[in-house]
Design a protein around this nucleic acid. Structure first.
Lengths: 166, 166
DNA sequence: CTACCTGCAAAAAGTTTGCAGGACA
DNA sequence: TGTCCTGCAAACTTTTTGCAGGTAG
């Protein structure tokens, strides 16, 4: 009774949820951690640790955060249920929002690196069903579909290409 | 007409397929590479680079292979279509046979690390369908279902022996 | 004042690469 | 003989950790 339409219980903001988690761990919701949180939730794009470090390292204002701190904050946010590691690209873990955002999977273009989100409840149900058949208790999953996005395999226009339509 | 029951065209042995690939790349099917290949195909278990290096590094007979060579061979075997990277465990890439072996996915126990293989064609078809809806051309996928295996979440019962009869 | 944080630099861990000597054709 | 291979060690990459000084309560 809680597996479908995960876009629920968003009555609490990411900041509140993070604070709650940190408190529960005897940690503090410091100004620095708030900066990282805000940067992370400033948009819905996928990102990796390095990109975030980049965005938070050299800034004029006092909002710069060191590499180690960013990594530590990311790990905390994953544990807090705010983020989830969604895939791996260029040998880096890719993160995305996992709070107040419906679960979904990805089509990953092996040529452009583009990641297309999709959601399919039947696949989700089948995963549960298969797991159940094995007495396996599911806590999550990661489905990465590799291939070529429309832009990547559909020749930029004319140029006829070998592959055109089926 | 070639997506189902991938247990086909196994008319060529892994060795032959590897040799063919290497030749096509201007590379040689050396004795060392054969040793790696044989070790890899000596059983159907999942393995990571380190385990293979371990098995091939200190041996009495002349069949020892260095770490760098093992890594290079693994990469070649993946490119040759003999192996595929199947998941990631303990920060290591996990490999499995991808030749003459049907495609499948995995239930991964987050407590014991156990990996249970399963195969579900409906999920497979749905992935194709979803991809098609996005104009995405699938070349492969990776589905890792995380959770607790039967052994991990079902208390060991009394002390009867884990495994007794089914 | 004590406990927790932060940034830096160093350390880990997995994988790749440069190189000198060896093997294959 | 010339090219490809191999093993070693060094290099690289991403992520983690030790530590000294700083901050929150």
């Amino acid at each position: 009774m809680s597996n479908d339409l995960a876009s629920v219980e968003v009555s609490v903001s990411p900041a509140e949820k993070f604070e709650e988690y940190l408190r529960s761990q005897g940690m503090q919701f410091t100004a620095t951690r708030r900066i990282v949180l805000e940067e992370v939730f400033s948009d819905h794009e996928h990102f990796d640790a390095d990109q975030l470090v980049e965005r938070l390292s050299h800034r004029k204002d006092g909002r710069r955060v060191g590499r180690a701190t960013v990594y530590r904050a990311l790990n905390s946010m994953v544990e807090a249920g705010l983020l989830r590691k969604v895939a791996r690209a260029n040998d880096r873990e890719v993160y995305e929002h996992d709070y107040g955002y419906p679960q979904h999977d990805h089509l990953i273009c092996t040529k452009t690196g583009e990641m297309i989100e999709f959601r399919n409840d039947v696949i989700r149900e089948l995963i549960e069903k298969v797991a159940a058949e094995h007495g396996f208790q599911v806590t999550g999953h990661r489905l990465e579909v590799y291939g070529l996005s429309k832009e990547a395999h559909e020749p930029p226009k004319r140029r006829h290409s070998m592959l055109d339509r089926i």
